[in-house]
Design a protein around this nucleic acid. Sequence first.
DNA 1: CTGTATCCACTTTGATACTG
DNA 2: CAGTATCAAAGTGGATACAG
Lengths: 225, 225
Amino acid sequence: MGSTYGQFCPVAKAMELLDERWTLLIVREMVAGSRRFNELRRGVPRMSPTLLSKRLHQLVRAGVAEKRIEGKDVLYVLTPAGEELRPVVEALGAWGTRWIGELGEEDLDPKLLLWDMHRRIDHGAVPEGRTVVQFEFPDVPAQTRRWWLVITSDDADVCDADPGYDVAVTFTASLRSLIRVWRGDLGWSDALRAGSVKVNGPEALRRAAPGWFTLSTFAPVPRPA
Amino acid sequence: MGSTYGQFCPVAKAMELLDERWTLLIVREMVAGSRRFNELRRGVPRMSPTLLSKRLHQLVRAGVAEKRIEGKDVLYVLTPAGEELRPVVEALGAWGTRWIGELGEEDLDPKLLLWDMHRRIDHGAVPEGRTVVQFEFPDVPAQTRRWWLVITSDDADVCDADPGYDVAVTFTASLRSLIRVWRGDLGWSDALRAGSVKVNGPEALRRAAPGWFTLSTFAPVPRPA
DNA sequence: CTGTATCCACTTTGATACTG
DNA sequence: CAGTATCAAAGTGGATACAG
């Protein structure tokens, strides 16, 4: 456990749990709907599994999450106390959006972008059947330059290798630009007009494709004047 | 600085700054109105001055606080960005109030209770002139058993030694009980009726004294059913 | 798939004393 | 009042391999 502050103040008591590195990001992942160990891992890929395991235990012990075993599935689910951390995560995200716009190179992880996007697909807007969207980041090392989303009516998979199916549209952009769009720092239309994000594919799909993705939860946060 | 998460998510970016030990408690103190170094120290007495100094520098560098030198005074003042952390502190405090009611012995610090109380005195409710309120915690080691608040029309001082003036009323309680009242875990009337907090002094003052203190900001937070 | 075990380098903190 | 200097101890996290 994090060490104690020796204060009865509820802010201090809350932070004894929540100020430990990674803890609140795990809560964020759970708030976003992740429930399985390896699902959570994909949201915090720089964490070692050991540490993720430790943090999950702490959250369970603190009454924030519950480990639920259903048949062969192991799920970590927020308790009511955990669910009530949503406003905390939202307040932090809104603040971060407004006051920490500058991103370093090391903040730009395509893996996380795709993982985020796959969770926020507007399945109603995507064509019926299987739709494959390709992403190409010319500025990124070959290893992680190309990604695919395989979207079906109720699911989406992130692939870092060509899944082999026909590609509906391809997004080509610097990683930073697409992340800026995703975060709401840059509008789709501005990005497309300026050419910092390009969409290739049949006209109809190309026009529709930006609408397939609901942007980050924090994209609508108003920026400081 | 706290190490980075390598994530563009605004929650992660916010936590890179705020998840460091003590940081948010300092922000809490500033939100509560403390501005001078030694004033801040009294709100986080377990911090070494070195570390407080370091944290203040970080907050300044992050644009959350501003170091303002006015004549011979050095003040740390929240910037607009810092002021906007108030909702974060409030969300955390509300959550902590609702879900972390259990306090360990080491959380019960009379120094912090008195420091908190002196900030929330309802000066309009206290009699004119100088009013001295004494606190006695029979369960606490002699060193920190007795405290005094010297209240004037627009100021209040915390003393750990008898200031020598006439005492208007004396509160006698276990430290835990008075903290529970302060936090809103236990109502004044319940505490007085049960005798876990006692007030001594002239009848009129004795009756009025609980009204001299506005309870902790989080006392009104509704508790889980 | 869901973790645990191990190990070490590094950072962070706390304690204490001291200064302009 | 407003901090810095110093230093040892603790703990934290990262990497990797492995297990049920």
